[in-house]
Each structure stands twice: as structure tokens, then as C-alpha cells.
Design a protein around this nucleic acid. Structure first.
Lengths: 151, 151
DNA sequence: CATGAAATATAGCCCTT
DNA sequence: AAGGGCTATATTTCATG
């Protein structure tokens, strides 16, 4: 992973559809050399996948919220993690330092859905207590793409 | 934006390099019809861009933290927002409800760098108070790609 | 929106450094 | 090992119905 690899990743991050010859011109390599590097970056896991950055609003998910979670003493932590990993509304969930156990990023279509999600989590008995913070607007946001849903 | 468009976005999110004919087979359309839909989705902004999901660790950014910010009364909020939007370590920054004004997602190479970032923000006089929460591990995380850096 | 042809881009091969 | 150039193949793109 040298500087050229990083530059290639940065360029792909901006536009993953750019022709290899184009990227090559930008980093000073031939198309085939770039192709080989990308192959290696994917192979090593430095590039996890090629994807799209979608607009959550266009997909009917205008509500962004963060959820602080303190797990109940007797909660099944594995089940909680599984639910976070699989639930389509949970974009991220991290085990964090501080007064709370977990921080989850949530995208839903409406406040009603947010309430329903909270109810669902509570119903499983996961929560000792929780706090919901709603994002009013975003100064800058990362890429978004919808999770795979069940069949 | 019908269900087929959504399915196309979901499939591209999983693998944006899949051949159009392949995607077409999955959604019941021809390659050219899929191509035309993707063109429209990009045109309307529903697909913001084609990108890659990179591994932050491979790029030397193993530290993930969230930064809660309460802006100082006399802070230049526009300048703060500009800094958040442009700083390469800030992946997201949202204006939020609750006791804090902003929530920022930060990726850096080390705790030293995190400390330096905090010092930088303080030095600008933006902060009334702040709180930093470090992510110890991630149950699930969204796509990551490095921000464009200055020339 | 499907089909089929034309234009492009990619991926592998072989040779050079 | 890594890259450059070439070529076959696969894919995207466009015209037509």
C-alpha cells in the first residue's frame, strides 16, 4: 500500500467508473498497471467493494437519528448485536467508551417509524436506558447505500 | 423511482461492477433498459456517484471517534461548518437536537492525531464544550472512502 | 423496452526493466 | 516484482423497431 495505491483509492472513491486509462494518466501508470493494483487492493481487502452512494431522501429515508444505548444487565448482547447488524434501518452500530454501551446510526422514513424501531428494541428487553438524537441537517455526510433486506 | 429502481440501487450498492445484463436478469429487464434507468437515477441525483468502500485500517485510519460539540456563543458558525466540511478527518457532521449542537464522525490514524484535531478545533474558538466518544469496535459500519485532500 | 450492431473498456499475456 | 503495450473478450452504448 504505497502512495499510488492511496491515490487510486481516492480517485475511485470520487468516481469508480473512471476508465483505467484515465486513472493511469492521473497517477502516472498504464491502464494495465492500474488494473493490476486494483485487483490486488480488492484481493487484500483494502477495497471492500465497488458500490454507489445513494440519496437517502430519494429512497424515502429522510429521517436520520443517532441512538445511544445502555444495555440491560440481563440483555442477550449477542442477540442485540445480531439485530443491529441485520436491521435495515441501522446503518452503523459501534461499541463505544463513555456512559453508554452502543451508538447506532439510524435512517428511517418517518418519526413514526423511528418510534416503532425504538419500541421493537425495547420489546426485546435490550435496553437499560436509551437516548435518541435527531439530525436536523447535515454539514457533511458519508456515502449511503441501503442494506440488503430479507426475501 | 419505482421498486425496480430501488432494487437496481440495492444491487449496485452490493456490487457496482456487476454487468448490466446480470442486473437486468435479476430485475427482469434488458441490459439497455437497466442502463437507461441508471442514467436517469444518476441524472436525478438518486445515485450521487459510483464509489468504493475502502477499509480505513488499510489506509492507516484505525481510530474511529464521535465528537459532540456545543458551539461557543460567539463562534463563527459558518467557519465551523466550513471546517467540518473540508477537514479530511471529518467523515460526517450533523446539526442535532438535544443538549449538543453538532455531532461529528472522525477517523484518524492515532489518538495523538485525535488530540491534535481537538486542539485545532479549540484553537479556532469554536467550542463551548465538547465530548469525545471512541468506538472500540463496530457491530456494523457504513461504507468508507477517504475525502479529497488539498493539492 | 428489447434487439442487435458498434464503440469502449477491461483483463490476460508476454516481454522488458 | 512491477509495469508497458498489445490483443481477445466482455461490456456498455446507441440506433432501430
Amino acid at each position: 500500500m504505497d502512495d499510488i495505491d492511496k491515490k487510486i483509492i481516492r480517485l475511485l472513491g470520487l468516481d469508480a467508473r473512471r476508465a483505467l486509462a484515465d486513472i493511469g494518466a492521473a497517477v502516472g501508470l498504464s491502464a494495465s498497471a492500474v488494473n493490476e493494483r486494483i485487483r490486488r487492493l480488492v484481493g487484500s481487502g483494502a477495497i471492500r467493494r465497488f458500490t454507489v452512494d445513494a440519496d437517502p431522501r430519494a429512497l424515502g429515508l429522510p429521517v436520520l437519528a443517532y441512538l445511544w444505548v445502555a444495555l440491560a444487565r440481563d440483555a442477550d448482547e449477542e442477540a442485540f448485536r445480531r439485530m443491529m447488524a441485520e436491521h435495515p434501518a441501522i446503518g452503523e452500530c459501534h461499541h463505544v467508551t463513555g456512559a453508554w454501551s452502543y451508538l447506532a446510526k439510524v435512517r428511517v422514513g418517518s418519526l413514526d417509524e423511528l418510534e416503532a424501531l425504538l419500541a421493537e428494541i425495547k420489546r426485546h428487553g435490550f435496553l437499560e436506558r436509551s437516548e435518541t438524537v435527531i439530525a436536523l441537517s447535515s454539514v457533511t455526510d458519508g456515502p449511503f447505500c441501503p442494506k440488503e433486506e430479507g426475501p
